[in-house]
Simulated scan of single mutants.
Amino acid sequence: MHKGIRARERKPPWLRLLAPDGNIAQLEAAVCGTCGRWVLRCRQGVWEAWDPGVIQGDDLTVAIILGVRLTRLKTVYGMCGPTLIDVCGERGIRSDGQYLAEHRCGFAPISLTPYKPAAKARQPGKPWASGIKLTEEDVREFERIWNMPVKELKCLTRSKVN
Results as ranks from 00 to 15, higher is better:
Met1Glu: 04
His2Ala: 14
Lys3Thr: 11
Arg6Gln: 05
Glu9Ile: 03
Glu9Lys: 12
Arg10Gln: 05
Arg10Glu: 04
Lys11Ala: 10
Pro12Val: 12
Pro12Asn: 13
Leu15Trp: 06
Ala19Val: 04
Asp21Ala: 02
Gly22Ile: 06
Gly22Phe: 05
Asn23Trp: 14
Ala25Gly: 15
Ala25Lys: 09
Ala29Ser: 12
Ala30Tyr: 05
Ala30Phe: 01
Val31Ser: 02
Cys32Asp: 13
Thr34Val: 14
Arg37Tyr: 03
Arg37His: 05
Arg37Ile: 01
Trp38Gln: 00
Leu40Thr: 06
Arg43Thr: 12
Val46Asn: 03
Val46Cys: 02
Ala49His: 09
Gly53Val: 13
Gly53Phe: 14
Val54Lys: 08
Gly57His: 14
Asp58Met: 09
Asp59Ile: 03
Leu60Met: 12
Val62Arg: 07
Val62Ala: 03
Ala63Gly: 09
Leu70Asp: 07
Leu70Thr: 10
Arg72Asn: 09
Lys74Val: 15
Lys74Trp: 07
Gly78Phe: 12
Gly81Met: 11
Pro82Glu: 15
Pro82Ile: 13
Thr83Trp: 05
Val87Met: 00
Cys88Gly: 15
Gly89Leu: 10
Glu90Lys: 07
Gly92Ala: 06
Ile93Leu: 05
Gln98Asn: 02
Glu102Tyr: 05
His103Asp: 08
Arg104Lys: 06
Cys105Arg: 07
Pro109Tyr: 13
Ser111Asp: 11
Leu112Asp: 12
Leu112His: 11
Thr113Leu: 08
Tyr115Glu: 09
Pro117Thr: 08
Pro117Asp: 07
Pro117Val: 06
Ala118Met: 02
Ala119Arg: 09
Lys120Ile: 04
Arg122Ser: 02
Pro124Leu: 10
Pro124Met: 06
Pro124Arg: 06
Lys126Ile: 13
Lys126Asp: 04
Pro127Met: 01
Trp128Ile: 09
Trp128His: 00
Ser130Leu: 14
Gly131Glu: 00
Gly131Ser: 00
Gly131Lys: 03
Leu134Phe: 15
Glu136Ile: 10
Asp138Cys: 15
Arg140Gly: 02
Glu141Asn: 00
Glu141Cys: 01
Glu141Thr: 10
Glu143Cys: 05
Glu143Thr: 05
Glu143Ala: 03
Glu143Phe: 07
Trp146Gly: 02
Met148Gln: 11
Pro149Ile: 01
Lys151Ser: 12
Lys154Arg: 14
Cys155Trp: 00
Cys155Phe: 00
Cys155Gln: 03
Arg158Pro: 05
Arg158Leu: 08
Asn162Met: 11
Asn162Gln: 08
